[in-house]
Design a protein around this nucleic acid. Structure first.
Length: 503
RNA sequence: GCGGGCGUAGCUUAGCUGGUAGAGCGCCACCUUGCCAAGGUGGAGGUCGUGAGUUCGAAUCUCAUCGCCCGCUCCA
């Protein structure tokens, strides 16, 4: 418990820093805010872009086998029917008013108990492999309890989501065993609905996409026809997705509007090869995380058990991050088979096959899907970087961000602002550096204060122009993490920054 | 959605038995300052989440609403 309190306050500190320094604000704050949506401030937007740019650079530009795509957020509503989202992207809930327990309504099954054609009550239980036999035992127990004579008819189990209204009061709560305490199933689709065009009827219904993946599948044929690609190859996309989550939680970890970075990597359909590609992608992605400062010590892998897989997946491995509120999924790497392409092929009537020149055959490729949340990555990067240490007995808060993603790459400081020659020299160095990197010019306060300000927003380099700079052109380069200083020439400065920032 | 806790300046908060708000840090300006949150002076910023009610009068009492945190649930 003590540990938990400590972890909670750490998260509060990080949330506080994000707001205080202009990384993340609650959206529409002046109107009271709205749950599950966030705005990124001047520093947040830089960090966020850096994460996305790093991903795009490494996953698209530096690979021969991946091309990019930017599909629209609103697509034909048939896309979401074919993908299964209209029917199954739901979180139907039922609450027990007695026990305060909540169940997934589609995991709660019930059956009428009929004896010689006469109903004597209902039984209910949670979905499991042996629920048929358990339900039968419960029905027999009910029959004994009510001392009813006669032939017990076979039970017909059905999910609570399909219960007609008159059954709601009959179904006993799994917690109490007594009927009457369950609420009606509250079913809602997690997709945001809207209307396209002037008419607001059934034919105009459209959805804000809950994932970017379907835009990729829907464009599979276009890319194959025009992109000079050969299986195996991938299509990458970065973009917003929307889910009407019941309970957005943990700051930006689960929000209702978020951004995804997804790749659909198409592979031949052979049964014996997908595992190899799946593993390759897990390793590739972990290497990438390391390149933005999320090293193995922060990360974990979680293999989804087969019975918990989503309807489309044959395997899924999560790359997890040890957040202050627990180890949670950062990226899901799913082997989706060819479920999606087959679905769209059937629904659209358009063949979504690939002709393999090497094999001289046509097939619908299978797919490996590394799917990552930009905002989760942002949060992970900030959590991993957040550090408190002591410099000469003074407490310091520092974001040890990897230089590649740091919102500000360097702070440029004249040692004193009332000396025009220092100001001028520093200003001209600043003008030079800003053409290439996002750098910050700061003259206010003592030099130590300026360093600490930069520490708190994760700026890796502090560059101070002093009187020696006027003579020999060298500057003091101060390292954020160690606070060590070195004198370097302008050329050395630029090559150090190039090397550590990486582009 | 249900249950529990919370909501005062950018941040941390005083005010708690009702009489229309202070502090520290931060921020801005000037002075000072030869390298790690130094010092001085001045300054901006709060109708106390929002709305309604009780009252002569509410940040302090009541209700509603929004948001935040925790649990049930869930995912990128």
């Amino acid at each position: 418990m003590a540990k938990k309190d400590k972890e909670l306050s750490l998260m509060d500190e990080i949330v506080g820093l994000c707001k205080r320094r202009g990384f993340i604000f609650q959206t529409s704050e002046i109107y009271g805010g709205i749950n599950g949506f966030f705005d990124y401030g001047p520093l947040g937007v830089e960090l966020r872009r850096n994460i996305k740019d790093a991903w795009w650079k490494d996953m698209v530009h530096l690979r021969d086998d991946v091309v990019g795509l930017d599909s629209s957020i609103i697509m034909h509503s048939d896309v979401w029917k074919a993908s299964g989202h209209v029917d199954s992207f739901t979180d139907p809930m039922v609450d027990c008013k007695e026990s305060k327990m909540r169940y997934r309504a589609d995991h709660l099954f019930y059956a009428h108990v009929l004896v010689d054609g006469k109903e004597i009550g209902c039984v209910s239980l949670l979905e499991s492999e042996k629920m048929e036999s358990e339900a039968l035992e419960m029905a027999q127990a009910l029959k004994r309890k009510l001392a009813v004579q006669g032939e017990l008819e076979p039970l017909q189990l059905r999910p609570y989501t399909e219960a007609p209204e008159e059954d709601w009061v009959k179904v006993p709560s799994p917690a109490t065993g007594e009927p009457g305490s369950l609420t009606p199933p509250r079913e809602f689709n997690m997709m945001f609905k809207t209307n396209v065009g002037a008419l607001q009827d059934a034919s105009s219904v459209a959805y804000l996409r809950p994932e970017t993946a379907q835009g990729i599948f829907a464009n599979f044929k276009n890319v194959v026809d025009t992109g000079r690609v050969k299986v195996p190859f991938g299509i990458a996309q970065v973009g917003k997705a929307f889910r009407n989550e019941i309970t957005p939680r943990n700051f930006i970890f689960r929000s209702r509007e978020f951004e995804q970075m997804e790749i659909e990597y198409f592979i031949p359909p052979d049964e014996d090869i997908w595992e190899r590609y799946h593993r390759e992608w897990i390793d590739t992605r972990k290497d990438w995380f390391a390149s933005i400062g999320l090293t193995a010590e922060h990360l974990g892998e979680e293999v989804h058990p087969r019975d918990k897989l989503a309807h489309y997946a044959r395997a899924c491995t999560d790359i997890t991050f040890k957040f202050p509120f627990g180890e949670q999924e950062l990226e899901g790497i799913a082997a989706r088979g060819n479920y999606d392409l087959i679905q769209h092929q059937e629904a659209s009537g358009k063949p979504l096959e690939f002709f393999d020149e090497g094999r001289k055959e046509k097939y619908v490729p299978h797919v490996i899907e590394p799917s990552l949340g930009v905002d989760r990555t942002f949060l992970a990067v900030v959590c991993a970087a957040y550090t408190k240490d002591e410099i000469d007995g003074e407490q310091r808060t520092v974001l040890k961000l990897h230089p590649r993603v740091a919102p500000v790459k360097a702070g440029v400081f004249p040692l004193m602002k009332n000396k025009p020659e220092l100001m001028e020299k520093a200003r001209s160095l600043y003008e030079k550096l800003r053409r290439r990197w996002n750098v910050f010019f700061d003259v206010s306060g003592a030099i130590g204060r300026r360093y600490r300000r930069m520490d708190e927003i994760g700026t890796p380099f502090g560059i101070t122009v002093d009187f020696d700079s006027l003579d020999d052109g060298t500057v003091t380069l101060r390292d954020r993490d160690t606070t060590k200083q070195q004198r370097v020439s302008e050329e050395e400065l630029i090559s150090i920054m190039e090397e550590q920032i990486g582009w």
